[in-house]
Design a protein around this nucleic acid. Structure first.
Lengths: 336, 336
DNA sequence: ATGAAAGCGCTAACAG
DNA sequence: CTGTTAGCGCTTTCAT
């Protein structure tokens, strides 16, 4: 008759006639232990239905193998790719990701950071370089490596793996201007919440100004997340408010695709009548008809490089440097 | 000069002249404690940069406030919605989700379940009702509530919140047949990995048989995840292998959209020349042109209901019953 | 409303 | 290769 309590190492030790310490060693790969002893212990563990208790191990060893990660939304392929890259890199070394969603809200991010730090992660990765003062302070005092991603922070807290959103959009503007477009619009989200989106919008304005072009064709698609529906609605407004627009840059491929479908519903030819540019190189941009001109920001690469950076920081390697990703313009059929 | 070690409750106690127990109470809302004492403690905590240590709390109280969740892929809007619903429901009660991705692989799921259980979650939610024998055993012996989702398991381990994938596809087949389509094909993934996809394919075959129709137009789109590109490639094969096909049902909206784009590239009219049905009611299906006929399986609802079920199980409410979601057919312009 | 004692299950540190 | 001792930081339990 099995005991009702879940078995501990002490139970296995009693059953096997060894000390709890030996049991502990049996579960730790690479420890000095007699093979027969280990086998007997593992067998006893199997018989008892023993499950290792990380909770106790974490407390005693002061190591949790958690890496805390915050992203704006779980339902976004770009951030999902980043988490995928992180997960793969860190999982290979036994770390587990503790994920939180900020819902594009810095106050929510602050709450989340505080909550995550209580779990004593061994590093924390946050999306973006913009935080509430309190969140900044929490991160600075966290005593674990901090990595900011998807941005080149004005004042980095620790390290970062990112790119300049403004510069990435400038690249697309330059391409559009070189292709002959002059009346260029921007579709993006509410400036107050999505800081990366805001940076893209500001980059757009600056880039147009640099070419001596008018930068007043700005369509506000509301609070993030800006997805397909918002893109379609924004395109409808753009066509009615600025009917002579020649090209539009959207804050993401999702909104760009929505905008494209609105053109299709209205019989507005893309790119002949209006060109469309997206951002983020989502799968849809490569397969829709016409395929979308976009910017590959390297979402998965950001995750992988961040993962490696985190490992280097945990290993306390010398000379660890930040990573600046070079976004890549991808010209497709939605622009000429 | 601040100490180098991170401060503990004992440090706060010393500084405030109270016992560690009182400090502990100060951080627990609703405990009997003098307001001034609590304020002084919270201030001291703030001054010291104290961060509550869940790790120790978890061990002593034998509660982690973790809910373990496995999903096939993070990069899938349907599962992301489910996690969103779970996260919202459980987060409101202070639980934190511990997420793992199986990559549509039951062996990986087994590894993941074992890893997650070591963290001593207070419940575990898995996607699907199909598991390796060892994973089943681990779940059965876990001593915490187990909920299977996105399926109606043949032999439930604990509780479930799901729907019949086969029946959902049958609904669409019935609709297609009623609309006059006879030569109907199915595009889906490799049968060995994605069990929900397989169930849909089997449901398709059974439904056609029920109508006395030929069910041999099956296009295997390879190992999951089956996304837009795979859908497009599969449509190309379908058009060449079975050129007289009148309608095709795809394992998801993503593959359906890919299939649609392939038709657009080839000038094949949808739905006039071939009708397309998807699955999952992804955002894209509602906005692409033509919009996709699909099945809303209630991804977010599954998450919300699962969250509530988990809470009821943790609260040990009596008479807890499983939830069977009724998928809803959504007819749009991609079929007539 | 507060405190004292004990211990959750594991492992660091040391000894042999 | 194995054992002993102590303790990680908190909270349960019982007292006052």
């Amino acid at each position: 008759m099995r005991s009702d309590k879940t078995p501990t190492m002490a139970d296995i030790a009693r059953r096997t006639g060894v000390s709890p310490m030996t049991v502990s060693r049996a579960f730790k790969p690479g420890s000095l232990i007699n093979k027969d002893t280990r086998d007997a212990i593992l067998k006893a563990a199997e018989d008892l239905g023993y499950v290792f208790d990380s909770t106790a191990s974490n407390l005693r060893s002061q190591k949790t193998d958690f890496i805390a990660v915050t992203i704006p939304s779980i339902n976004n392929a770009n951030f999902a790719e980043t988490v995928g890259g992180l997960s793969e890199t860190l999982g290979a070394r036994g770390y587990q990701i503790l994920l939180g969603y900020t819902n594009y809200d810095l106050v929510e991010e602050e709450r989340l950071v505080e909550q995550l730090l209580r779990r004593k992660p061994q590093a924390i990765v946050v999306t973006g370089g913009n935080h509430t003062p309190r969140a900044r302070k929490l991160l600075e005092n966290a005593n674990v490596p901090v990595v900011e991603t998807w941005d080149v922070p004005a004042a980095p807290i620790g390290h970062f793996v990112g790119f300049s959103n403004a510069a990435a959009v400038r690249g697309m503007v330059d391409h559009f201007v070189a292709a002959g477009y002059r009346r260029i619009a921007f579709i993006g989200g509410d400036a107050s919440r999505d800081t990366r989106g805001s940076d893209r919008r500001l980059g757009f304005i600056a880039a147009l100004a640099g070419h001596g072009l008018d930068a007043s064709r700005l369509i506000d698609a509301g609070p993030p997340p800006i997805s397909m529906r918002e893109g379609a609605d924004a395109m409808a407004r753009l066509l009615s408010e600025f009917p002579d627009t020649e090209a539009v840059i959207c804050v993401s491929d999702l909104s760009a695709f929505g905008a494209l479908t609105e053109c299709q519903r209205r019989g507005v030819a893309v790119p002949e009548r209006i060109a469309i540019g997206g951002f983020g190189d989502y799968e849809i941009g490569g397969i829709c008809v016409p395929a979308l001109t976009t910017v590959d920001a390297g979402a998965r690469l950001i995750g992988e490089r961040t993962g490696r950076l985190v490992l280097d920081l945990i290993d306390a390697l010398p000379d660890i440097s930040d990573v600046t990703i070079e976004p890549r313009l991808i010209v497709r059929d939605s622009s000429r």
